[in-house]
């Protein structure tokens, strides 16, 4: 465990907490893409199946359980408890366009043709694009609440820090995983445009509003 990895995980955790807290405190999930949240739920479920099969560390297991629980809680709040506030008219991204290619790619490019490995690979591919419905929703409405922006920023920072972690691990441990790295680069690049808007607008106290 290096500092980039630890900060990345903390940032990831922070993003999830920011989102849950926002929904809970405002009693509303307006502006949040339920589809992205469903995709993240699927990502965690398919990736963390190894909770049952292999033990790595207490940290690892606890974080996995927390991510799973927080993800399911978010989905529950959006689709059950605060369903009335869910902005589904603006959440129109077709998720099959992400899920189907992720399945196909996982079957074609993987480290080992075994169920758990393919599910892990699928989760890596899907995670890299799972935020697209949310970004699409922001672009459709042309704006995002500051708190939603903070959530997206923390989520983007998480993958950015993981990139630094992989560079460090390659250099220090001779360890690298090309599937994770390529997908991680794609994922981070998707956030770049948002990072720019976040830094130039949200951090200066303005609302994130896209130019008309």
């Amino acid at each position: 465990m290096n500092i980039f990895r630890l900060l990345g995980d903390i940032s990831h955790l922070l993003a999830i907490i920011i989102l849950l807290r926002k929904i809970w405190m405002s009693r509303s999930c307006a502006g949040i893409s339920g589809k992205s949240q469903l995709l993240f739920g699927l990502v965690y479920t398919t990736r963390y199946l190894d909770l049952i099969t292999s033990y790595i560390s207490l940290y690892n297991s606890v974080m996995k359980v927390v991510f799973l629980a927080a993800s399911y809680a978010t989905i529950y709040l959006m689709y059950v408890k605060f369903k009335a506030t869910y902005d589904h008219n603006h959440d129109t991204f077709r998720i099959e366009f992400l899920v189907v290619p992720a399945v196909a790619l996982a079957l074609l490019i993987n480290h080992d043709f075994q169920v758990v490995e393919i599910l892990w690979t699928f989760s890596i591919y899907l995670e890299s694009v799972a935020i697209l419905p949310q970004l699409f929703m922001v672009s459709k409405t042309g704006e995002a609440e500051s708190i939603t922006s903070h959530y997206l920023f923390a989520l983007g920072v998480y993958r950015g820090l993981y990139l630094l972690n992989w560079i460090y691990r390659f250099w220090a441990e001779d360890h690298y995983d090309l599937i994770a790295i390529v997908a991680g680069v794609v994922q981070t690049v998707l956030y770049c445009d948002f990072f720019y808007l976040y830094i130039t607008k949200v951090l200066r106290g303005k609302k994130l509003q896209l130019p008309a």
């Binding site: 292999s54 790595i56 972690n165």
Partner: peptide, 10 residues
């Protein structure tokens, strides 16, 4: 063939 890599990342 290389052994499966242990997935120690989240």
């Amino acid at each position: 063939e290389a052994p499966p890599v242990q997935k120690d990342e989240l």
